[in-house]
Design a protein around this nucleic acid. Sequence first.
DNA 1: CCTATATTTGGCGGACCGTTCAACAAAAGG
DNA 2: CCTTTTGTTGAACGGTCCGCCAAATATAGG
Lengths: 193, 193
Amino acid sequence: MGRSRGFDIDDALDAAVRTFWEHGYEASSMQTLCDAMRVQPGSAYAAFGPKRALFVAALRRYAETVSADAVRRITTPVSGLQGLRDYFDHLIEAMVDGNRRWGCLITNSLVEFAERDPELAGLVGLHLANLRAAFEAALARAAAAGELRPGAGPEAAALLVAVAQGMNVLAKSRPGRAPLRAIVDATLAGLVA
Amino acid sequence: MGRSRGFDIDDALDAAVRTFWEHGYEASSMQTLCDAMRVQPGSAYAAFGPKRALFVAALRRYAETVSADAVRRITTPVSGLQGLRDYFDHLIEAMVDGNRRWGCLITNSLVEFAERDPELAGLVGLHLANLRAAFEAALARAAAAGELRPGAGPEAAALLVAVAQGMNVLAKSRPGRAPLRAIVDATLAGLVA
DNA sequence: CCTATATTTGGCGGACCGTTCAACAAAAGG
DNA sequence: CCTTTTGTTGAACGGTCCGCCAAATATAGG
């Protein structure tokens, strides 16, 4: 019993995700975060613990929503090649129009945290491994269907992960649709039959 | 006339480069920077101005030394394809052994600064355009020499920039040599004849 | 209703941040 | 030598940061 919480945990977490996503960890003060979450500092600390714990929760939320949605685009289509196209097409649109103009929270976190927080870096590494596995499966499907040029296969997953990370970096310079298209087209041109 | 400076500007700048490179901008306090530069705060402010100006100077220094060295590996060999190989081979070694285990200061800066400092983002954009131009020239040379598969040409420069940025991100998770090799091999496999 | 419990409030404290300044030291010109 | 000019020193400033807490508030159960 007792007083019930006056805000929704996931709503607050989504606000924290947006703040961390846009400004990064250090540049997001607890003040700013609390304003975005519409919650007072005391309530935030009661619900999430200190800032780092809030960030971990936000990162998990991001992985379960934004990132999982993106990965699903790779795995859903029966055609492996179509899965790759869907993923990258959506990526481009979200970078031009949507919230991926801030890049990717996972990518940003790796850059900002890798040197000083090995535990957090490991968590990021898990999500990157997920993405890589999805790419590998799609490439295997595509190869089996004869959609790839001879010699191309699942080992190209490493390349696709690198390209995605590179695009996440370049997205922060707010490029137009064309430069991003060029990256994807050149990538796939080297893979398809 | 007057007292001469007791430290070398470029040496201090190199120390600042290392600090910013390893820890990022926000996580590098003036205290830490002054310790690394072996200089007192007053002297640092007299020589470089406020923190942001020191960072700009450090970024320029990085571009003129580390980055210029890397780009030179692309442009120097007469064989365009060999230029690409030299660049990426050196990148891999520096990521495993050398100071590129901290990624790339330019990449890191784009991720950390793009949202809040358009001027700095523009400066980073210039350096990326440099890299892109070097890739384009190398690809043109390679195509003219028949080193590339039909259809591959200078427009693949966008891909190479993205792959380089992606590797700079992934380097922060301290991968072994093999995963990095796989990225480069898959990239070039899609380009060469 | 009243009591027990959980949440919210709003501000406080100690630490660290970037920056400045007056006192001091040293080198160059005469 | 002395004067002038520049660089160095290291403490200290105001401001912001994160994290916390006692009082006030609201809910659920009896």
